[in-house]
Design a protein around this nucleic acid. Structure first.
Lengths: 249, 249
DNA sequence: CGGGTTATTGAAGGCTATCAACCAAAGTGG
DNA sequence: CCACTTTGGTTGATAGCCTTCAATAACCCG
């Protein structure tokens, strides 16, 4: 499959009269994270547009000229890059409250592609609007740097995973990471449905879909998890953590 | 080797009366890249301190509370992260003109460690100074975002390499990448000395030092390169590019 | 020159990919 | 309502890449 099917880019702007940052339920995990309440109120003009994305829709593609970043409001997306040979590498899965498109800050083009893995909606944060709000709220510039810095750290973690871990350690780390993110969102940290298929997980972790499937089966056989299709329950988190942590030497 | 030898952190601040950004020979590749000449002059107060790092010295470590970023003035450094098990993953090698420490923008702590791989000197760019200069030069905020965005893209590229390429493709890509960066600096793009050892290259590419060494030998046998220890000459760049580009299926 | 670090090369084994078959669930159309 | 198709997941057998263990060689710096 050299270049997969290209879903139509269907962007549906919403009316601006919707909940804003200071009243958003995701306030504690999204852009305002860690900011003073008084400052958060000034963020209310930051998002002037939202986009609803049916499953499979592209938010932006490599080389797109969009000068904005996005935060997930509901649903989930994946970001991936595609090299000249058509080889795809998924670089991240994004849950509500998480930022997307930070690699597009080159004010010109993105280096990755973002696709909805299920029906989703994102807040559009225009770069020009960031500057405008920041002129009255200087700490917003710090905040943006923090968010980018966090994303950079996240990608370094993934690098470490791909570079020096065995397949089972990578999957265990992936599951634990999801668990923690769901907990942050207020969902169960031990029981959740995967938003992505085996092939996507495998690609993300640098494995094939067969290896991924086998690992799910093995983890279940060893009573670390129970799994039916995309429904996952973590049964022995300490054991999973030990698996990730133990030295590969 | 659970936790490698820890070199003493020896930082030697220099007198501030040194060449500044507008007169620096690295102006075309460093912070000012792409900025208008008039704006670059305003950057001259950005760097108020430089640090000289003897080979093996640590610039900053994971969890360091330094609130600054750095640009390489001469020499080279590597950045790496270390997980709980002591497993090290090198996330990048940095040549003159390149930025380091962008992951420390969390204004608190870095998530990586930076070590000089040879005698080096870096410019210290304090976050507070960025804001101060930016108050009169708003485009500096854009510039910082651009630089972070670029680093993010770089790490995505590396992810794709680790996730979906064979060992020989990774090394070929690494050599081509170095070639291009040396060219940018005005050095030969076909003949250079590696600033790092086989083990470090292997770690960076998710391989062992033996595999790395074997690949160097194989590339030389196939007349793609010639290599003596750390002296490398690229003999057949088109073939190397084809190797990287060709589909793994 | 000599000790220690770094690089090279060989042989064996393990982990993961590849190829392939099978199964289950969800549409699709007669 | 039921064959048929499609999509996604599971499982098995085999091959091959890369690691691991091990020995040797080259280099560097005192």
């Amino acid at each position: 499959m050299p270049s997969q099917r290209i879903p139509m880019q269907k962007r549906v702007p919403l009316s601006p009269a919707s909940p804003n940052c200071s009243t958003c339920v995701l306030g504690h995990v999204c852009v305002p994270i860690g900011m003073a309440a008084a400052d958060v109120r000034q963020l209310d003009t930051l998002v002037q547009e939202r986009v609803r994305l049916p499953k499979g829709t592209i938010l932006y593609t490599q080389n797109d000229m969009l000068d904005a970043v996005y935060s997930v409001r509901y649903g989930s997306l994946k970001t991936q890059i595609e090299d000249a040979a058509g080889q795809v590498q998924i670089t991240g899965f994004n849950l509500p409250g998480e930022m997307i498109g930070l690699d597009g800050m080159l004010e010109g083009h993105h280096v990755s592609t973002a696709i909805a893995t299920e029906d989703a909606e994102v807040c559009v944060i225009r770069l020009s609007q960031i500057d405008q709000v920041a002129s009255q709220l200087p700490s917003l510039q710090h905040q943006m740097r923090r968010l980018m810095s966090r994303e950079l750290g996240r990608s370094y973690q993934l690098l470490a995973s791909l570079g020096s871990m065995r397949s089972d350690q990578r999957l265990a780390g992936f599951l634990l990471n999801l668990s923690q993110r769901y907990a942050t969102l207020g969902y169960s940290s031990t029981e959740f449905v995967l938003r992505m298929g085996r092939e996507e997980i495998g690609n993300y972790l640098g494995l094939t879909l067969e290896t991924t499937s086998r690992l799910f089966s093995r983890f279940a056989r060893e009573n670390l998890i129970s799994v039916h299709q995309r429904d996952v329950r973590l049964l022995d988190i300490p054991a999973l953590k030990q698996l990730v942590g133990q030295d590969t030497c």
